[in-house]
Design a protein around this nucleic acid. Structure first.
Lengths: 216, 216
DNA sequence: TGTACATCAGTGAACGCGCGTTCACTGATGTAC
DNA sequence: TGTACATCAGTGAACGCGCGTTCACTGATGTAC
């Protein structure tokens, strides 16, 4: 055994991390294998002893806080226990945060690569679906009962988080992008029942507090 | 004048339409100029007498029901008067419809190309922003007062429509994709105040009808 | 009506380039003695 | 401890290919007479 046992696993992990960063920034098709390997400190030729093809990497790269226990970036301070009942509002705030908006390279791939995925093959779509369903589950588990189906609300909340970020990143005007993130965050928190209704500036609403399912 | 006056304009329009279809299906980077020109019944060489570069086409291709008066596809039957107060629910239903989900080539580019746009230059992002803001305006104008800011609700509704479709298209399981579209549609209609509350299956909600701002 | 012509829309060969993938090889590694 | 060695992780030249872009040219067109 010329090389230590975990050597290949470690190098493979470096290649995947390099690919994730580059794919997040430039998309599947605008990243070359030479770039990916260079990002892992290697040259392009060695790639095919780790992966059968470039597209095999796509599935490996999809993974986020919801499926990957080692996720970092904007998730610092967010509870790690995925079944926690308090996780919903933390997730929504972290997902729609300025940090997540700016840090494209370490972004959740659902924000950076959804249309690349929709043009890809079945295994890639399956991997995307797994991450999205994991996000929905987290939101559903901590959502507060308010008479409307929890799963449907969690699905819409997740779509709102992902969609808000995707659209914000496609805008030119930073102020409008910020405004959009804030609007999505506000609605997402309300949808889960995590919104502190007393903070509402517009006092016209006569909706009784007991039905708003706020946390406080 | 060897060719009729409107000839160039007409051909340019054909090139843009061909590009729109192909970009929607395969993304900016997976479509060649030869393909675009072939779709317009021409050969690749003539392209540069119509456009300075390939990327100049990107901005031309962004345009949807909200900015382009000739839009078709899933918008059949939807009112053309963008300032109509009844347009909101029509737009939400058409946008999240099965037809719009399936007809990728004639899709709204905000669904098919948002991440391609986020990797593009300023003019492309500006064009995207214009379409999105037009959609927000339409939703805002017809949204019903319920004590929460109308613009913020309209922004979230638009992000929900776009995001729901983007995510649904990236999924493998068709049933889950349908379920997601339905969930987003339901929440989007509620957000605008267009939902018929009497249709809610779960009767636990005691929210007074007058505050739900339903249409009927 | 018919013909000769100037215009310019459209053609297709050619360019340099970077891609994904292959493969014969090199040389760093842990092991055996 | 030191050395010779088998292994195989990693290298880089080479491949065929399709891309965006350029440009000298062709030939369809409406016009003038």
């Amino acid at each position: 055994m010329p090389y230590a046992a975990g050597h290949r696993t470690e190098v493979k992990g470096k290649i995947i991390q390099s690919a994730r960063r580059l794919f997040n920034r430039d998309g599947f098709d605008n990243v070359s294998i030479a770039q990916i390997m260079a990002g892992a400190g290697l040259t392009h030729g060695g790639f095919y002893s780790y992966f059968k093809s470039k597209s095999e990497l796509y599935t490996e790269v999809l993974g986020c806080f919801f499926t990957d226990p080692n996720w970092k970036s904007c998730w610092e301070g967010v509870e790690v226990d995925l079944s926690s009942a308090n996780l919903g509002p933390q997730v929504v705030r972290a997902y729609l945060s300025r940090q997540h908006f700016e840090d494209v390279e370490n972004s959740c791939p659902m924000v950076a690569l959804p249309t690349d995925v929709s043009r890809s093959n079945a295994p890639v779509k399956r991997a995307f679906e797994t991450v999205f369903e994991a996000m929905v589950s987290v939101l559903e588990r901590s959502s507060i009962e308010n008479g409307r189906p929890r799963r449907a609300r969690a699905q819409a909340t997740a779509a709102l988080c992902v969609g808000g970020m995707v659209v914000a990143r496609a805008m030119l005007n930073r102020v409008r992008a910020d405004e959009l993130r804030e609007a999505c965050m506000s609605v997402a928190l309300t949808l889960g029942g995590w919104r502190d209704e007393s903070k509402l500036k517009n006092g016209k609403s006569k909706r009784p507090r007991s039905l708003s399912a706020g946390r406080i």
